[in-house]
Nucleic acid binder design. Structure first.
Length: 831
RNA sequence: GCCCCGAUAGUCCAAUAGGUAGAGACGAUGGAUUCAAAAUCCAUAAAGUGUGGGUUCGAAUCCCACUCGGGGUACCA
């Protein structure tokens, strides 16, 4: 190791591994990143949270990126001297642990907790500024006990309930899934095609909160990524329209349908009931029974993918019944079909083939009449097969004739309401959250089924209902019912109400329940009398900055928002949105493809760290581009990051060797001082705006400026060089904590650089005495002038016109107009 | 199909409220250093902003259409 630039400083290339060990030990001892609970501590409080990891193995590149981003935010807040809460824990219930246990003939806890330890060690090496004392694992009984407690509170409020219904069933994982966990007709985790099964399951009544979940998003505007808000809005899918009641011949009760186009009611030519709805079964006339049953059986066999294919031609059967259109008394045939969904609206529709493509496709398939009721000027849908949806006047619609859609909708609703056959109505695409799972490694549902008392909640003082510990390996294999059912001594229990023999509910909760409120538990992780200490949550909540991947855009984020609103209604939290700001970091990919084991193109985080060191890896992921964009590992260079860090380190080491801390920078080189303060100003702005890659570019400039000052300027001993080096250490600490600490120490400081060292730029050093003004003639740059920044428009115009170059370009032409944007631009418009 | 987002040197990316297209980096080329190489340092070249229109004194930035890429959603009545 030879010193460069003439300064003999020992070790001017840093040894990443040695620094990592040295500073990890120091941080472990000094605990600089613990949040203060002292009520007298009046520093601003800041809650920064990364979505907690699932312990699937060791940390990988994706974690490296996500946590590096979150740490920039947290460390910036630490540097500002704020009281920062930046905790870590594990989302440690879930299927992979169970599958591993089956394979290894062990208990899921073994695999889970071993992985957690591995990840914890890796996080420590990775240098994330966590408060380790708040660590939690959702699979601990001390944690999941409160899932049960919360479930019971939801149950008391009618927000947790059981119902029969068609549910998504994954044949591979042998469990039901929530709607949110079915992606394109496939199981979100294993990719198996999901089928529908009719089962009795537990649900959370999230639909009751649909309006609030939707409307409260207004307050997240500008603070959450626009696309996440959009995805949630679409997912909730509020549509406004009307409920219309149709009398069915031979049935006492009318059947209600929901429509967003009540204005087209006069165009309804048939009526369709979801084939798998109970209503279809009930309405079916005896002479059509056989045909209907055959049809229904065929539909039940289809997977969601087959069923949802838009290519598929419409199918259905006539039920041998007729409905009466409430506005014109027309008799229209009632059909059963699978294009109508049993669980949306009322599971039945009025079909208006002229103005709805699906209804038209059906009408064409079964030769049903098509009646145009909106004159849009488009071709006859009965001929073209294309339903018309444009604007136009209503026709063939009695009292609505001549009206536009916007006029007709309120009018028809009024008419329906007067006759008592309809009302304005709202429907949502969002369904209730199916929360039971037929798997082992999750939170047992704290309900006992008693032959006499029915469904009985387990009393709070008997919580937690612990998972049995004697099941392992093959005992956990999926059988279509929860493995818990096999634990006879666990299942058989006394009814909490009557004391008689009863059975425990054997399903476990969706693990998204765990993650819906974990952020609250961090505020008081050791509380054992409640899920969280209400006072502590009042102090810390809500989260100022949440960081995580877009894959949770609807799942976790929607559930967590729902939980927060319920807890607000219960008076346990005083805010209604859990995550004030959200940052979605991108993914790390390789050569254009997602990294995967099967492709064998994975980048191993451990190897990268061994080769380049933690700081270089962190710098690489943060510098690669805007945080929300994907990083292709083929496009980045950790080697280059390491080179830069060495350069920065050398500047700090040389400045440290040449001067003492506390040197007054005022006497230093003015140009470098200005560069330092400009950098500080720009880095602060970039970090605040979450443009971390730009912030790093600014630090790079300062390193270059300091390098030059040492080599060919005032030299390493100049106070301005020390000032620059210190600012380099402080700003670099957000991404390269080890180099920053070591550099800070080399600069002669004894404490950690990481906390409370951010500086405010000196405004006097930010003002520039002259700026470059561009003078354009006909929008082309023809001259540049050095002018004072506070120059007046008149003066600048005079100077610009006085320029010889400019005059040369104006020539004989007349000046029509002079646009002056002092102090940076003048544009002379010529004829 | 519908709805969003994006496209800037060979590559990744910058460009306050339209106002000099280049901050930073990778790579390339040349040079210094070296017996040579690595490392280090210095220098240079490189696009007119996906395409076509429009608004404007002036457009990467605003508007319209299209192309390509990415994402969401999929019979939601």
């Amino acid at each position: 190791m030879t010193a460069v630039g003439g300064d003999q400083v020992a070790g001017d290339t840093y040894d990443a591994r040695a620094l990592q060990e040295k500073w990890q030990a120091r941080w472990a001892k000094e605990n600089p990143f613990a949040a203060s609970e002292d009520p007298a501590d009046d520093r601003p409080r800041r809650y920064v949270l990364d979505m907690f990891p699932y312990p699937s193995g060791d940390l990988h590149m994706g974690h490296a990126e996500a946590f590096a981003m979150g740490d920039v935010v947290a460390r910036y807040r630490f540097q500002l001297g704020e009281n920062v809460l930046h905790p870590i824990g594990w989302d440690s219930f879930g299927l992979p642990a169970e599958n591993a246990a089956i394979k290894r003939d062990s208990h899921p806890a073994e695999w889970t907790y071993a992985n957690i330890e591995t990840q914890a060690e890796s996080f420590k090496r990775y240098g994330i500024a966590f408060d380790w004392s708040r660590r939690l694992h959702t699979s601990d009984p001390e944690y999941y006990r409160w899932n049960q407690w919360l479930f019971l509170r939801f149950y008391e409020r009618g927000l947790a309930y059981r119902k029969d219904g068609l549910v998504n069933w994954c044949p591979n994982d042998q469990t039901v899934l929530a709607n949110e966990q079915v992606v394109q007709g496939r199981c979100e985790r294993c990719g198996t095609e999901v089928v529908r099964r009719s089962l009795n399951q537990w649900y959370f009544r999230i639909t009751e909160y649909a309006d609030r979940l939707l409307d409260d998003m207004e307050r997240l505007e500008g603070k959450w990524p626009e696309r996440v808000l959009l995805m949630q809005r679409n997912w909730i899918g509020r549509s406004r329209g009307a409920d219309v009641r149709f009398h069915i011949e031979g049935r006492d009760e009318p059947v209600t349908v929901f429509t967003t186009r009540p204005d087209t009611l006069f165009g309804a030519t048939f009526f369709v009931v979801a084939a798998d709805a109970a209503l279809a079964d009930e309405l079916c006339a005896p002479e059509h029974r056989a045909e209907f049953e055959a049809y229904r059986a065929g539909v039940a066999k289809l997977t969601d993918i087959e069923r949802q294919s838009t290519e598929r031609t419409k199918t259905g059967v006539f039920l041998g019944r007729h409905a009466i259109n409430p506005v014109n008394g027309e008799r229209i045939p009632v059909w059963a079909a699978d294009y109508v969904l049993a669980d949306y609206g009322h599971g039945a529709i009025m079909a208006v083939p002229a103005h709805d493509q699906r209804d038209l496709d059906f009408a064409k398939a079964f030769d049903l009449p098509v009646r145009v009721v909106v004159e849009t000027g488009e071709e006859d849908p009965d001929i073209t097969g294309v339903a018309t949806a444009g604007e136009g006047r209503l026709v063939n619609s009695g009292p609505l004739d001549g009206l536009t859609k916007t006029e007709a909708i309120p009018r028809i609703i009024e008419i329906l309401a007067e006759r008592g056959t309809g009302d304005a109505a709202v429907n949502y695409r969002l369904r209730d959250w199916l929360l039971s799972r037929q798997r082992f490694w999750g939170t047992p549902i704290p309900i006992v089924h008693c032959p006499d008392c029915g469904e009985v909640p387990v009393p709070d003082d008997q919580l937690p209902v612990r998972l049995p510990e004697n099941l392992r390996g093959a005992d956990l294999a999926p059988k279509g019912v929860s493995p818990l059912a096999a634990a006879a001594d666990w299942v058989n229990t006394a009814c909490p109400r009557c004391g008689g023999a009863a059975l425990r509910d054997t399903d476990t909760m969706d693990t998204f329940v765990d993650s819906s409120w974990y952020y609250l538990r961090y505020c008081s992780p050791h509380t054992d009398t409640a899920p969280f200490d209400v006072e502590q949550v009042r102090r810390w909540g809500p989260i100022d900055q949440y960081v995580g991947g877009v894959e949770h855009a609807i799942l976790h984020l929607l559930y967590s928002r729902f939980f927060t609103k319920v807890l607000y209604d219960m008076g346990l939290v005083d805010f209604t949105e859990p995550f004030t700001r959200l940052l979605n970091q991108g993914q790390v990919i390789n050569q254009g493809k997602a990294m995967s084991k099967s492709l064998g193109n994975g980048v191993d985080l451990g190897k990268e760290i061994d080769e380049y060191g933690v700081d270089a890896v962190r710098l690489t992921v943060v510098f690669a581009g805007p945080p929300e964009e994907d990083i292709d590992w083929a496009d980045v260079s950790p080697a280059a990051s390491l080179r830069f860090l060495n350069r920065a380190y050398r500047v700090m080491a040389q400045a440290g060797a040449a001067s003492e801390p506390g040197t007054d920078p005022a006497a230093g080189d003015l140009a470098l001082r200005k560069a330092t303060h400009q950098t500080l100003d720009k880095v602060t702005a970039a970090v605040e705006a979450q443009r971390f890659n730009v912030a790093i570019a600014r630090v790079m400039e300062l390193v270059t400026a300091a390098r030059r000052a040492i080599d060919s300027g005032p030299g390493a001993a100049d106070p301005a060089v020390r000032e620059a080096a210190e600012v380099i250490a402080v700003t670099l600490s957000l991404v390269a904590p080890y180099v920053a600490e070591e550099g800070w120490e080399r600069l002669g400081h004894t404490g950690s650089v990481a906390v409370g060292n951010w500086r405010t730029p000196d405004p006097a050093l930010l003002v520039q005495e002259s700026v470059t003004c561009v003078v354009q003639v006909a929008s082309k740059v023809r001259d540049k002038l050095q002018v004072p920044p506070d120059i007046s428009a008149e003066e600048l115009e005079r100077l610009a016109l006085a320029s010889e170059k400019v005059q040369g370009f104006i020539g004989e032409r007349t000046v029509r107009k002079v646009v002056v944007r002092e102090p940076k631009l003048v544009n002379i418009v010529v004829a």
